[in-house]
Design a protein around this nucleic acid. Structure first.
Lengths: 204, 204
DNA sequence: CCTACCGATCGGTAGG
DNA sequence: CCTACCGATCGGTAGG
């Protein structure tokens, strides 16, 4: 008896429900877009009432922002983590590329990379949702640039790569997501893996 | 009196109206998306009633398809034409890149490249609208690949470029549109111009 | 090309 | 987390 009665973890059901909602929301958003996503469709998709969703998120904008946060966590775990586990520099650039391509290959989201779609969709809009997407994009670009800088510092890459290499790799990520989503052809992913390696001087 | 009374050209007003509608539709679509575009918003934007639009296009899908056709014509005139005017091979690849970047710089569409947005938006959807976007993408990829082939045939490019160069350039176009739309920074366009030239062995 | 209208769905709220 | 509801807007049609 010592510590008293059994207690369920406070709100654990709510936390789990919220996570399930957000996961479904992120998936739907890669097909319908962050704006095209509707509360009604999401509610139907997870077997809940619309007002049930409003109990978790006070507005569509809050839902969108929470969805972006969830997608970011997925991206951090599946893509960024592999890069951080590698040696900064060329090895990290290869690692993040392979992890990104594997993220696509596994079809984690039905519409390809969440942020590739979101950046193109929200790029010319005002508001907090756009700002959140821009922040992600800026952070990713900064991470890539840091790897390039490390590669240059280590003598793995020429200093001229500081100007554009991170941008180029980012562009190949966009192309990979767009092309793989369009065609479903795994060869696209192998092609991009080769392109990046070559660009880094790591293949014929 | 010879040829009789003054006659207005048959339906010329209707043709002009239709063109104006489609131009506005293409502009709105680069901000709201091809799906996010609504008949009501478009009608308001051009000062016409919703049913006035339905007189020109029987359904939203027809409007979307006609909008894509209009955007394709703009792209053909402003981007493709410059490439076809150049020597096939490296010169054509430089020409299409510069024309594409100028198309962005001029902000022909407020949301950047119409098709960059459309491909990412429609990639994971079914239907005729997606098919039309895929067709554009396939045609552009084929055009680029033809230029690469010509460059290889002329000895300007190594045969190894046949595998991926056209894909890489396409990726830089996507990155240019996304990044320029996000930041509005013209330096992005200069960067991509340099990246492509370097990739073609035409700059330091 | 218009007014007037349709059923359905939108984002969101009241009240429990 | 639900039912029941709100005004606004959706794509689309009738009839002119």
């Amino acid at each position: 008896m010592s510590t008293g009665q059994v207690r369920r973890a406070p709100r654990s059901d709510g936390v789990r429900t919220r996570a399930a909602i957000l996961r479904a929301s992120a998936e739907l958003a890669t097909v319908d877009g962050l704006e095209g996503l509707t509360i009604g469709e999401l509610a139907r998709h997870i077997g809940m009432s619309k007002s049930g969703l409003y109990a978790h998120f006070g507005s569509k904008e809050e839902l969108q922002l929470a969805t972006i946060e969830t997608a970011r966590q997925v991206f951090d775990e599946q893509v960024i983590a592999s890069a951080l586990a590698a040696e900064p520099g060329r090895a990290a650039l290869v690692a993040i590329t392979d992890a990104y391509l594997e993220h696509l290959r596994a079809r984690v989201f039905p519409g390809g990379c969440f942020f590739a779609g979101a950046v193109l969709e929200m790029g010319s809009r005002p508001g907090r949702v756009r700002d959140a997407v821009v922040t992600f994009q800026r952070d990713l670009a900064g991470l890539l640039q840091g790897f390039v800088q490390a590669g240059v510092d280590a003598g793995e890459l020429p200093p001229s790569d500081l100007a554009s290499l991170s941008f180029e790799i980012n562009g190949q990520f966009l192309a990979a997501s767009a092309s793989f989503t369009l065609t479903g052809e795994p060869a696209v992913l192998d092609l991009v893996a080769m392109v990046v390696r070559r660009r880094l001087g790591l293949a014929s």
